[in-house]
Write a protein that binds this DNA or RNA. Sequence first.
DNA 1: CTATATGATGAACGAGAAAG
DNA 2: CTTTCTCGTTCATCATATAG
Length: 306
Amino acid sequence: MTRQLMVGIDKVCRSAYSYASAIRTPSVGIMISKDDCIQKYNEYKKQHEVIPKKKDFFKFAGIHERQLVGLYGRDAYTKLQEECGDEANKLNLEKTPTEKIMRQYGDLALELEELPNSSDWIERHFKPSISGLERRPHFIKWSEFPSKFTEWIQNNQVKGYEKVLGYINESSAKSKVKAEKRDREFEKLISNIRSWSPGRRRNSEGEYKIELRRHLESLGYTVNEEFGESNFDLLINKRHAVEIKKDPQLSEYDRLFGQLARHLQHQLRVIALILDAPSEDKFSNFTSLVDTYLCKDEKIVEVIKK
DNA sequence: CTATATGATGAACGAGAAAG
DNA sequence: CTTTCTCGTTCATCATATAG
């Protein structure tokens, strides 16, 4: 029954359709030509003294987009604009080839005789701009430019930028030295804390904190307490965070885990110092959690137990 | 409504330099 | 040595014209 109904509706639609298309046949005269479109286009320009946007053109000319497509095929409006001697409104969406970007960078470095910074790029109005570079489809953050450049040179065996590679090596060597210095400082701090032992058993975390602080200060560290948004227990040399827990239960380990994660957002390296740990079980469980989930890439959490 | 390649701009951030 | 200033970098947001 429903089926019959559908067929009936279908029939009605079909007949309506054929009626409509009959009206629109060329013989009736609604068909428009390219010349009509061009004329309307120019008319719009005269009236508004602006090149029409696509939508505005259709509204103005009283034409349906389909009709224009019928005349010009794909990119119809763009073709019309070109035919009228205008540059198409359509955005030029050709992506800047990697080669061009890299050569701009390399040549700029050669000219400056050092690695360019983003201001240099802006000054020359290179394309894409900094904001275009860092996103799709290029994904080149300025700081990553040197490494991407090196990669490009290697992959394509490009010659002529040896000097630039030299600059890149120089600067990465410099930052390596700094990183190593920081590493060594951190290692030393760890060993200093490891070799420290509290004078006596204390009743609270706070007392241990004070004692450790005195100890570290006597070794020449700069120590700040309860520092910054993330509230470390101690911040050593403005770089390394220390979190202290005394006699933690499971729930306190959990809390500590969260605190460490938060600290890692601010510092690359964090020390968790656990005092008077009662249960070896919970402790080792905690350290394995930390190793699995917190120590990633550059981020390091060192857990010390006393 | 979404995708496209890109631009503009201002806020947030971080490091280093200058000034105190 | 500490506070303040400056510069470079990154992020988020808005915008664009058109096709599908």
